[in-house]
């Protein structure tokens, strides 16, 4: 039973085809990686799944619910959370406030509640804060919650972004190059964190990643995208020996993939 299902998804911008009849699925309870050379369409695929891009054809569904027609915030409320390739935390806001944003779609207080500060609103605020604190603690950030988020060291910002995504209480978490720019020590922590997200929170993880070593160690399934076409799908072992994958990579950058 797969959690996320893409069928015949095609996306074009101004006549050029970015995604070409992509079939793709994420099985429930798995850590899945999406790899492929630069410009293969990986982030575009993420944007289709999260509702930011509207594919011209095909269907995308989360646990049977069609998402193509939904707006990004509705997709998030359905249970898909994401991080961005370039960390995009909210400027001039604290770490805690950044993570609290994830609870917006799960809560309901409006103008009148804010003005009157009734017990219901205060309970909700406390609950939002509680979720944010729990998510921050989970990703290993236990201090500096009042700091302006964008002043944190880069590796921390990445983890705050993951905490923020977790605060939306997703069923599926999309990570766009989560290891980019991290030190090798931080990468080890990231591997551990992603595994814990899956096992302790029961959240499926789909990641785009260029660090092949990390992908091979972490993933249970790997899909390979090249020029908008899904060219291979399988276990890390199968992918490593797939001639099409080797060709796709060797054609682009020879040293980047030590298969």
């Amino acid at each position: 039973m797969s959690l996320l299902d893409l069928k015949n998804v095609s996306l074009s911008f101004a006549g050029s085809r970015v995604l070409d009849n992509v079939d793709f699925s994420v099985p429930a309870g798995k850590i899945v990686s999406l790899i492929g050379p630069n410009g293969a369409g990986k982030t575009s695929l993420f944007n289709c799944i999260t509702g930011f891009y509207k594919p011209q054809q095909g269907s995308i569904s989360l646990a049977g619910t069609e998402t193509v027609k939904l707006k990004p915030h509705q997709v998030t409320r359905l249970g898909i959370a994401r991080t961005f390739q370039n960390v995009r935390l909210f400027r001039e806001m604290s770490v805690l406030e950044n993570v609290m944003s994830g609870q917006h779609g799960r809560t309901s207080a409006g103008v009148v509640d804010a003005i009157l500060r009734l017990p219901r609103q205060r309970r909700e605020e406390a609950a939002i804060r509680g979720v944010a604190e729990e998510c921050l603690t989970f990703v290993g950030i236990t201090e500096g919650w009042g700091r302006e988020a964008t002043t944190l060291p880069y590796g921390w910002q990445r983890r705050v972004e993951i905490a923020r995504a977790l605060a939306t209480k997703p069923r599926l978490l999309l990570l766009d190059e989560p290891a980019a720019g991290l030190t090798s020590g931080e990468k080890e922590e990231l591997i551990d964190l992603i595994r814990r997200i899956r096992t302790e929170r029961d959240v499926c993880v789909l990641l785009i990643e260029h660090d092949t070593g990390l992908v091979m160690r972490l993933s249970e399934r790997i899909s390979v995208l090249d020029h908008g076409v899904m060219i291979a799908e399988g276990t890390p072992k199968e992918i490593q020996s797939n001639p099409k994958v080797i060709e796709a990579y060797l054609g682009v950058e020879e040293d980047s993939l030590d298969l």
Binding site: T50, F52, K71, P72, H73, T76, R77, A81, R82, F84, R88, L89, F90, R91, E92, M93, E97, M100, S101, G102, H104, G105, R106, T107, A109, G110, V111, D113, A114, I115, Q121, E124, E125, I128, R164, A165, A167, T168
Partner: peptide
């Protein structure tokens, strides 16, 4: 309002509309 769910949402949207939408706003 500034210290409320809605007040924060205004700031999120002002700073980064895409990230705010990705958070379910």
């Amino acid at each position: 309002l500034a210290n409320s769910r809605l007040g924060r949402a205004w700031l999120y949207v002002r700073h980064d509309e895409d990230a705010a939408e990705a958070m379910g706003i």
